[in-house]
């Protein structure tokens, strides 16, 4: 028990730092810019980033299991494209949603299978998956497809009033539901615990008798599912299918995970983190937009600095932990292998 307590508090500290940063940034924005301190600005963060929250949460699961999924952004674009194409052929909303989710699940499961069955590196498999998904969406059409389906349009423009005139979109509810569901899965299911164990050390997990094959495939399936759901939400967001949607978004999702305290070596991280990470980068973006004279590279540089600071924080925590456990080895070894042993 004594061994477990510090780990949880360390974990909480990264989350707390993110949360604190969120409040400070929001406060700074409110002081400096008119109209920043309004509920709607805050809610807009959720409306504009709902898809990213969903995708990043799925990504977090993969990262915790010790892998990575680079195909998420392309998969979102593919889902938007397939939806657009199906609607153009007269499908109804229910069919499209089902087809999108099935596509995501199949895509994710396929990647997971390749990774486990042939011992290929997740980087390479999901990289190929990224090319494949983007390539298929180009094949469907190189032009953007407008979606006019009534149900989708209605869902897209439906405002759920929270307080007075302030509103959120349907997508926000979906995103929050995903975060809660994933939190529950991680905490209360065998699968969730297996993912953490596998990310901590795959060999020990296998020796413990955990089903590595099934867990690997399931993790990537889950990420595929989240990407598909993110794709549906994004399709609602823009009401169009377009093969160039969200180029490079996989890196944003990974960045959100890092800022949200998910350790990239796997086995460690709290699944509310990605959402907070997304909100952080979202607030920075909003501040830069409110400022209104900044060039795009400042967004990149600000997010880069943020990444650096959070990683430094993570490192310090892990190093401290190592020091307190095993003073001799940590003196000269701030590397990942020792961390795995500790967990």
């Amino acid at each position: 028990m004594n061994r477990l307590t510090p780990r949880i508090s360390h974990n909480n500290i990264v989350i707390l730092a993110t949360l604190l940063l969120l409040i400070v940034l929001y406060g700074a924005g409110s002081v400096q810019y008119t109209g920043f301190f309004s509920l709607q600005v805050f809610l807009n963060l959720f409306i504009d980033n709902a898809y990213l929250i969903i995708v990043a949460t799925g990504m977090a699961f993969v990262i915790i299991s010790g892998g990575i999924d680079l195909s998420v952004a392309s998969l979102v674009a593919l889902v938007s494209m397939v939806s657009g194409d199906l609607f153009a052929h007269g499908a109804n909303a229910g069919t499209v949603v089902a087809a999108s989710l099935a596509l995501g699940i199949a895509f994710g499961a396929g990647q997971g299978y390749l990774i486990y069955r042939f011992q290929l590196h997740p980087w390479i498999v999901t990289l190929a998956g990224m090319f494949l998904a983007r390539g298929i969406s180009f094949l469907i059409s190189s032009e953007s497809i407008v979606i006019t389906n009534e149900t989708y349009v209605k869902l897209s423009q439906h405002k759920i009033h929270v307080w007075g005139q302030n509103f959120v979109s349907v997508s926000v509810l979906i995103a929050l539901a995903v975060v809660i569901a994933v939190l529950l899965v991680a905490k209360f299911t065998f699968f969730g615990r297996a993912v953490y164990a596998m990310g901590g050390n795959e060999k020990s997990a296998a020796l413990m008798g955990l089903p590595i094959a099934r867990t690997t495939v399931l993790v990537y399936t889950l990420s595929g599912f989240c990407s598909a759901l993110g794709g549906i939400v994004f399709t609602l967001y823009t009401l169009s299918g377009y093969s160039l949607h969200l180029m490079g978004m996989e890196m944003e999702a990974i960045a959100a995970c890092v800022i949200g305290g998910i350790l990239l070596t796997g086995g460690f991280g709290y699944l509310i983190g990605p959402m907070l990470g997304v909100l952080c980068t979202g607030i920075i973006q909003t501040i830069i937009m409110f400022q209104g004279t900044l060039s795009s590279w400042w967004t990149k540089i600000a997010i880069g600095l943020l990444l650096f600071l959070f990683m430094a924080l993570q490192r310090v925590i892990v190093m401290r932990k190592e020091k307190s456990r095993n003073p001799v080895s940590s003196m000269n070894s701030p590397n990942s292998e020792n961390k795995i042993v500790n967990l």
Partner: peptide
């Protein structure tokens, strides 16, 4: 506001303008 070639950034920018 500069969207770095991304539609979602432009949508965010417009929402920000509305809020302002």
């Amino acid at each position: 506001s500069d969207a770095q070639q991304k539609q979602e950034n432009q949508i965010k920018a417009i929402r920000t303008f509305i809020a302002q």
